[in-house]
Amino acid sequence: MLKLSRLLIIYFMFITNNKKINGKKKKNYERINIKIVILFVNCLKMDIANEEIKEFINIVVSLSTYDFSEYSEKSLRRRLEKIVNDNNCSLTEIIKKIKKNSDFLEKIVRDITVNTTEIFRDPKVWREIEKEVIPKLKKLEKINIWHAGCSSGQELYSMLMFLNEFDLLEKTSSFGTDINSEILEEAKKGQFKYRFNAEYLPNFDQVLNYNPEKEKVPYSKYMFISQQHDTIKINPQLLSKVEFYKHDLVCDKNIFGIKFDLIMCRNVLIYFNNNLQNKIFDLFWSCLTDEGTLIIGFHESIMGPAAIKYIKKGQCYFKKPLNNNA
């Protein structure tokens, strides 16, 4: 139906354009015709049937441990549309390739995942962590941190810099996990492109240097920045403080066997439906210590049944232990 209506509009445009050439606008005619061709190609490319998406989900579940059935339908569709356009073939053809080649399946899974992170993303959140969470961490003998969906690791490294400023790094162990094994390799290296990250460097100052009375923390304390080589390298001391593992939040549960004092999971759950979000908030709850804190994205919130298991303070969610409802 959609395709048909699009084609009708294009046809209509064609007719009205043809009228125009009888008049004057010949130059315009050519230009618009190119546009029509582009539109035509787009309309053939774009449409993916719901059944194809369902088939894709089913095939992936049957061939691997990945389960996209509770991903937000619209965003999964957008990802698949992008993949179809990038590969220049239909989803049905992609499904065929997936069946034959497990490496290709891994590649498609990586392409579905979104990788966005920044150094000290959302400075306001970090100031709240300073106020609400750091005092709690100071009381602990040992600190365990998990960043679920850490992507290339900028925020986890930011956290380690942050903790070091409060002399807490020594007693910290941190883990970063992501579904995308390729991006984890990047995270392990702790080396990022200057040109993609330079615009976030001011975040560093907003978080660590907002107090003019304190001595300024230079970038060089934690990062070696070379505009010439287009690199930002994280201080090797920090690299040794973090371990990265491949982990799929949808089905891998707690792979660590320990509880965490702080869990970060930012702008990951926005790609899941309500039901799956709730399951994962429950998972985080069970992975947190009784005094533990969960930090989610700036425009995320805990809704649904899991909401009563947390106490919200600004951007921080504190675990509400069971039997403590009185």
Binding site: S72, K74, V114, T116, I270, Y271, H299
Partner: peptide, 10 residues
């Protein structure tokens, strides 16, 4: 979608 607003950082 479905009477709700969803966000994305794609």
């Amino acid at each position: 979608i479905d009477g709700k607003i969803r966000l994305s950082v794609e």
